[in-house]
Write a protein that binds this DNA or RNA. Structure first.
Lengths: 137, 137
DNA sequence: CTTGACGCTGGACCATGGTCCAGGGTGTAG
DNA sequence: CTACACCCTGGACCATGGTCCAGCGTCAAG
């Protein structure tokens, strides 16, 4: 059946072989089985799991957090799973809010900056708090 | 005048002394002057600069990026400063979009999860791609 | 002058998330 | 059987962003 070696698995998901082994060391992704020789074999389940790990990572979750998320799928307690998801949701919303504040600040700076003229007239320079814009005493 | 030792500076901004020295090693924050003894002295300008570093960091900028941002305040080329700010703005907007996608996915999961019953009915568990929810071949 | 807080330097150490290498063995096609 | 790609393990190494320590000098109040 669809059984992959570590190289094929890594290629499918676009990660390095070492990364797959690193995830294994980190307790995130175990091979479905091993050949007599010790070669790792992966099934579709591990492919899905590895893709999930990568997706979650891109979205700012640490490997530790991802491990917790993954652990929830084994803990068959639906209530706890839901609560954990809610916590992650709140966390993501906080991150968004912080970035939105940054975006607003940046966009105000960009739109009020004439883009020419004296540095002293540039709101971006002023807001950076650089030496050129601050009192030296 | 308002001249601070490294300890006072660190306390005002809420960072450790070692962190201030680490930023100095990284080329982000030099003391305004040194006493004969070698003690670092900081003025208001450095206080502002340190606060800027922290703010930017919270918003996901690396120390390297912060260094670039700070360098712009010395480059008195307003055009380049504005362009750099626009690039950062686009970057922040991308991060927001990625997080919003994650938030939407998470919130759909949370709101469609009954919070009780069979694990098989929990959309969160299903989406994790865990072994409990996948075919084993 | 003594004491205690504060500061100095250089270098070790930490966690995170990999990445690479040596020195082997294995799998398979020709 | 030979070749060559693939895989194994263990351990070193990397960048980032700190954090801590030893061993020593300094500053300021009492």
């Amino acid at each position: 059946m669809t059984s992959l070696g570590i190289g094929a698995l890594a290629k499918r998901v676009g990660v390095r072989i070492d990364t797959v082994r690193y995830y294994e060391r980190s307790g995130l992704l175990a091979p479905e089985s091993r050949l007599e020789s010790g070669y790792r074999r992966y099934s579709e389940a591990e492919l899905t799991r590895l893709r999930f790990i990568r997706r979650a990572q891109v979205l700012g979750f640490s490997l530790k957090e991802i491990g917790e998320l993954l652990a929830l799928s084994k803990a068959r307690n639906v209530v706890r799973v839901k609560r954990a998801a809610e916590v992650k949701l709140a966390d993501v919303e906080e991150r968004i809010a912080a970035l939105v504040r940054m975006r607003d600040a940046l966009s105000t700076l960009v739109s009020t900056c004439p883009g020419h003229g004296e540095p002293a007239d540039c709101p971006i320079l002023k807001s950076l708090g650089g030496e050129d814009c601050n009192e030296h005493s």
